[in-house]
Design a protein around this nucleic acid. Structure first.
Length: 568
RNA sequence: UGGGGCGUCGUCAAGUGGCAAGACACAGGAUUUUGGUUCCUGCAUUCGGAGGUUCGAAUCCUCCCGCCCCAGCCA
């Protein structure tokens, strides 16, 4: 057992239970086939990760397959930019569709043939009502709809019209193909749903080959059937569509009849998942783009420094159920720290520096001190860090007038410099007018090299440091939650989610002093800056020689908690 | 107000008639050269509510309450 293992014991959930039963009953010959079917109209986010992990995870677990299929039936909204980013993100998450990359648009010919079959069987008709009229004829939640005046066109006329729709003889909106089901159905989805519409637009894959495009409800079930999907897993809002999913497959010579199961989509506290709302954050420059490290997109999380494994573990832990829920961001962060704690090498960096001069340390002496890269996993080895007379420590690690329970450096107090020496504060130098501390004078105890006192005396704190003449100056970005409220989608009267954006979600520090070894960090490389947080060299802005770090997630902070409590 | 769903700890979530798993969060404590990690301990006499069936109910029945989804030629 190593920390690289996925969590043993997968959590039970209703979909897995269904699959177990199906496999035991030898349904579909014991075969399990799922698919992840994104529409290429936006970037994938952590909510999609839940679905990806579910579909690919189940397939892996039952020795089945999971296809990646682009649901690209709406050329007006879709773009290759998205099909590329989606593939990159699914791969990054750690899943492999092997040679099973499909597009609903690959099935346009077969879909058209199925539509013709429906018409021939009197189960579909060309309707020439306008969009507005169709809505009016649909009725309401409580009143039944009315039949379209075109509902009883002859099969021949329907066939002719549909073919001419395909041939581009009509303008957009002139006609649609509709299923002939039941205008009085209590399920609005079943009131003669639209199957095809005219869209005179280039499609990112089929170009100008088609001017009619199939709707989701017609396309999805048939695509599943064509691919031999056994379990078609989607989110709860498609529950009403299941009746139509089954109707289409039952009324056409479909190769097989997959079963649809719905689960609740993920909601995460302090963020939003709506593509529309995320798009607005990007377009109105509330963030730096889809991959801004504050975004819940997979590319954003990746840039923030999240590991794919932590996201997979998170998806496993939140479970799969049918009730609407809101998962605490703290759980995601817990999964992140859990992973990073094991794999991130430790390093010392001072974010808000204050000078420390060791009065009794030889002027030009430099010692290379051996430091562990990981406190527990010694296999990660050691590194040498330069130590000298003038150092930087964290401003937070010194208090001229220390409060109760504060046990870091203060006048007259002794602390340990990690892996170095015990030092004692003997004087504080301040700017005369302001109270700004410019320098802390200390003495060091040469008998404590490495951080151990031969006489056995203890110190209450160990703090990190960096040698002033050797360290590297760099920018570090401190990220925080994007929203100040737990649920930005459910907000006070008269306000909207933009009113709850956290104005302090990004703080850029430009005068940080890092351990010299960090100079050549490669973009994407992760570290723990000891006692502070996990950081990641930015994928875009960090260059070897000139690193820029993003704070991925802070370490738990017991002192911060105590301090907060004392202030109350 | 039609139809379809859902209600188990602060947050997720197992549980499908035999007497409320687990995780996060939270609170204590131990160990610690990261106030980190790790390790202990505590945390639902009760499952939206009220009745009923049963020796026994979160699980079955009845009624009530609350929340979500559906009236795109979006997915």
């Amino acid at each position: 057992m190593t920390h690289h293992d996925e969590p043993r014991g997968r959590a039970s959930n209703f979909i897995r239970n269904i699959i177990v039963e199906d496999v035991n009953a030898n349904k579909n010959g014991g075969r399990v086939a799922t698919r992840f079917p994104p529409e290429p109209n936006g970037y994938l986010h952590i909510g999609h990760a839940k679905s990806i992990c579910l579909n690919f995870g189940l397939a892996n677990e039952f020795n089945g397959t999971c296809n990646l299929r682009f649901d690209d039936t709406n050329p007006g909204k879709e773009d290759v930019e998205y099909v590329d980013s989606i593939q990159e993100d699914v791969k990054w998450l750690g899943f492999d569709w092997e040679d099973r990359l499909y597009y609903a648009s690959d099935y346009f010919d077969r879909l058209y043939a199925f539509a013709v079959e429906l018409i021939k069987n009197g189960k579909a008709y060309v309707c020439s009502l306008t969009a507005v009229e169709i809505r009016e004829y649909r009725g309401t939640l409580t009143e039944p709809g009315k039949d379209s005046p075109y509902r009883n066109r002859s099969i021949e006329e329907n066939l002719d019209l549909f073919e001419r729709m395909k041939n581009g003889e009509f303008d957009e909106g002139a006609h649609v193909l509709r299923a002939k089901i039941d205008m009085a159905s209590p399920n609005l989805v079943m009131r003669d749903p639209t199957l095809y519409r005219i869209r005179k637009m280039d499609h990112h894959r089929t170009g100008d080959q088609w001017v009619i495009y199939p709707m989701y409800d017609f396309t999805h079930c048939l695509s599943d059937s064509i691919e031999g999907i056994t379990h078609s897993i989607c989110t709860l809002e498609f529950e009403n569509n299941r009746e139509l999913y089954d109707w289409v497959l039952d009324n056409v010579s479909a190769p097989c009849h997959p079963r649809q199961y719905e689960f609740a989509r993920l909601n995460l506290s302090h963020t939003i998942m709506s593509k529309r709302k995320l798009l607005r954050l990007v377009e109105e420059n509330y963030v730096d783009g889809w991959d801004d490290p504050r975004m819940p997109t997979l590319c954003g999380l990746r840039r923030r420094g999240y590991t794919a494994r932590s996201i997979r573990n998170f998806c496993e832990r939140i479970g799969v159920a049918r009730r609407d829920s809101m998962v605490d961001l703290a759980l995601l962060e817990h999964c992140l720290r859990e992973d990073l704690n094991d794999v991130a090498p430790r390093v010392m960096s001072v974010l808000r520096p204050v000078r420390v001069v060791l009065l009794n340390y030889p002027e030009d002496q430099v010692e290379m001190l051996e430091c562990w890269n990981h406190p527990v996993d010694k296999s990660m080895g050691t590194r040498r860090v330069p130590f000298s007379k003038v150092l930087y420590i964290e401003q937070d690690d010194f208090r001229e007038d220390p409060p109760k329970k504060y046990f870091r450096l203060a006048p007259g107090r002794e602390v340990r410099l990690r892996y170095a020496y015990y030092i004692k504060c003997v004087n504080v130098v301040k700017v005369p007018d302001t109270d700004e501390i410019t320098e802390i004078h200390c003495t060091y105890d040469p008998e404590t090299k490495g951080g151990w006192a031969k006489d056995g005396r203890k110190v209450k704190a160990t703090i990190h440091w960096v040698s002033a003449s050797h360290c590297l100056t760099a920018s570090v970005r401190l990220y925080d939650h994007l929203f100040t409220t737990e649920n930005p989608s459910d907000v006070e009267e008269g306000k909207d989610y933009l009113d709850y954006i956290n104005q302090n979600s990004l703080e850029t520090l430009t005068d940080c002093r890092l351990e010299p070894g960090l100079k050549d960090a490669s973009p994407g490389q992760r570290f723990q800056f000891e006692r502070l947080a996990y950081f990641c060299a930015d994928l875009k802005d960090s260059k070897p020689g000139a690193p820029v770090f993003n704070r991925t997630v802070p370490l738990k902070d017991a002192w911060g908690k105590i301090e907060k409590k004392m202030k109350k």
